[in-house]
């Protein structure tokens, strides 16, 4: 499958006071038309930053992003040409990304109107999109503050879909929804991917939904992709200790499988990333050399890539136990 988005050696550095924060540190990834890539990792590991850098709205991003055959340059959101409007992001924070003083309908209609259709047609489109995400058509007439958290999240989704993009980067798009609404929105996204061969990067901390809908997953830790490959293979045999830890911390509705695995502490401050393998201070399988040597990102025999000294290039993934 020829990738529609290809990211090479992407890095993002924020400046926080006099500190430099490397929130994304040399990421390679790709997604094909008609493919869903799940991007997972703890909060603070750089998922949102990576998403924003891919759509080209971050200062201080370094590296290369190709979209549909062209390089995404670092341009402001207002000035992007028609080509890049086909690359849309659904932002994690639906409060911050909606303008509180403008009607919902006008905000959704903006995109299609720039694309050249009349105002009434654009508003009609907005109303039917709202319906598709489970909101009443007359929501076009209302303002963001009149909606609940989950309703605002769906408005943000409708806005991104309004211009029929070729690729969507969806940052936690369904985390604030009840399970049935989650299912409805996830089905809508999957339909768009299959029907229009859209590419989707689905950022989520809900691993059970990522498992269900993504073709491939990329696991991110402290600015780096530590493991990536086909979803089922990774689920069946996680090759990176961090992947395994993430997976065992999923709470289940029957309460039984809830094992809050104690990864000590939070993701470290990316301003001071640990030496060697960035995961070593929290890794239950860390070896002496992990603190000094950064593991290579190697390909295993099943095609996945992983950065951990316990795995050997070209071999099958070794089972991890802890």
């Amino acid at each position: 499958m020829k990738p529609i988005v290809e990211v090479n050696n992407l890095s993002v550095e924020y400046t926080r006071g006099d500190q430099k924060v490397g929130a994304v540190a040399g990421v390679d990834l790709h997604v094909g038309a008609g493919e869903i890539l799940g991007l997972v990792g703890e909060s603070g590991c750089g998922k949102s930053t990576l998403g924003k850098a891919i759509v080209g709205i971050l200062q201080g991003a370094d590296g290369e992003v190709n979209f549909d055959g062209q390089q995404v340059s670092k341009i402001g959101r207002g000035q992007r040409d028609a080509h890049f409007r086909n690359l849309q992001m659904i932002f994690q924070d639906p409060y911050g990304s909606l303008n509180p003083r403008r009607k919902i309908g006008d905000q959704i209609a903006d995109g299609p109107r720039i694309g050249g259709i009349s105002k009434s047609e654009a508003l009609e489109k907005a109303a039917s999109l709202l319906e598709r995400v489970g909101l009443p058509r007359n929501a076009v007439e209302r303002y963001p503050h009149q909606f609940s958290g989950g309703q605002r999240q769906r408005i943000a989704i409708a806005r991104a879909l309004a211009i029929s993009p070729k690729v969507i980067i969806a940052d936690e798009p369904i985390s604030a929804l009840d399970t049935s609404s989650q299912a409805a929105v996830a089905n809508l996204l999957v339909n768009l991917v299959e029907e229009f061969q859209m590419g989707l990067i689905f950022i989520s901390h809900d691993l059970s939904i990522v498992r269900r809908i993504s073709d491939r997953v990329a696991v991110m830790y402290l600015g780096k992709i530590v493991e990536t490959g086909k979803t089922e293979e990774i689920w069946n045999s996680p090759a990176h200790p961090y992947t395994k830890a993430l997976m065992s911390a999923i709470p289940h509705a029957d309460g039984k499988a809830f094992i809050p695995l104690d990864l000590p502490g939070d993701v470290p401050n990316p301003a001071y990333p640990p030496s060697g393998c960035r995961f070593h201070p929290r890794c239950p399988l860390a070896q002496g050399e992990c603190a000094s040597r950064e593991p290579l990102h190697v390909s295993l025999s099943d095609g996945r890539k992983v950065s951990c000294i316990l795995q050997e290039a070209g071999s099958a993934p070794k089972t991890l136990t802890f």
Binding site: G134, T179, Q182, A183, A186, I209, R212, I213
Partner: peptide, 26 residues
Amino acid sequence: QGLIDALPDSGANGKRLIAIEGMPPE
């Protein structure tokens, strides 16, 4: 029951999840 059926780990229908039919009330 509908909320539980919608969970990603219940039911197997490829990538499609089981959402409750129809629109949430206004």
